[in-house]
């Protein structure tokens, strides 16, 4: 039973990370105002949103399954307060920080149309902190964190996100940027 929980805990962690990576990539893409071939803009937004919710579901599974696992020895406090774990407290603490950020980002995203644009946007920017913290947690804390296949996965994900961020800050990021003479304040 413990072995099964442990395996599920690891597996859901890896799936969460992949889903989070896809979410970040789609989030940056949708911000540019461009469609994908065969995927219109509103669909990108919807896929971004749904993959994010899938990532959340897997993060919840990941945390809950490991709570019942006897190796991990998690306490309720570890869900929200970082760096007090008994096993690898620093790397596990990063996971807790990532969960806290994720809660803030998801709640403000779900309430976006009530909170107004500014609050939503400021909190949503925390994603740029969430993603590397989650990745570091996976490498430092995960049983598979330093195995070759996972390092390949992590490396490719990092490259993809870095490329997207580089495109995000480049001059031609926004569609129509080249023909617009002024920018909104």
């Amino acid at each position: 039973m413990d072995a099964a929980l442990w395996a599920f805990g690891r597996g859901t962690g890896v799936v969460s990370l992949v889903a989070l990576t896809v979410t970040v990539l789609l989030g940056i893409l949708t911000r540019s105002g461009r469609p994908l071939p065969g995927l219109p803009r509103f669909s990108i937004t919807l896929v971004h949103r749904n993959v994010a919710l899938v990532a959340c579901a897997f993060v919840v599974l990941h945390v809950v399954l490991l709570f019942f696992d006897s190796f991990a020895q998690l306490t309720v406090l570890d869900f929200v307060v970082p760096f007090f774990g008994s096993f690898l407290p620093f790397w596990q603490g990063l996971g807790t920080v990532a969960v806290d950020l994720l809660i803030a980002i998801i709640v403000t995203a779900l309430l976006r149309n009530r909170l107004g644009l500014r609050t939503f946007r400021v909190v949503h920017w925390l994603t740029y902190a969430l993603w590397p913290i989650a990745l570091a947690h996976a490498i430092g804390n995960g049983t598979d964190g330093t195995s070759v296949w996972f390092l390949w996965l992590a490396g490719l994900s990092t490259l993809a996100v870095l490329a997207a961020v580089a495109w995000r800050v480049s001059a031609r990021f926004v569609e129509f940027r080249s023909v617009r003479t002024g920018q909104l304040s």
């Binding site: 469609p35 803009r41 617009r180």
Partner: peptide, 23 residues
């Protein structure tokens, strides 16, 4: 004052909305 011409509404309502040369 808020619109940034991201183009989602024009995709959802092509019957009503087109995009101008700035999007």
């Amino acid at each position: 004052t808020r619109c940034d011409g991201r183009g989602l509404c024009t995709e959802l309502l092509p019957e009503l909305l087109a995009r101008d040369e700035w999007g």
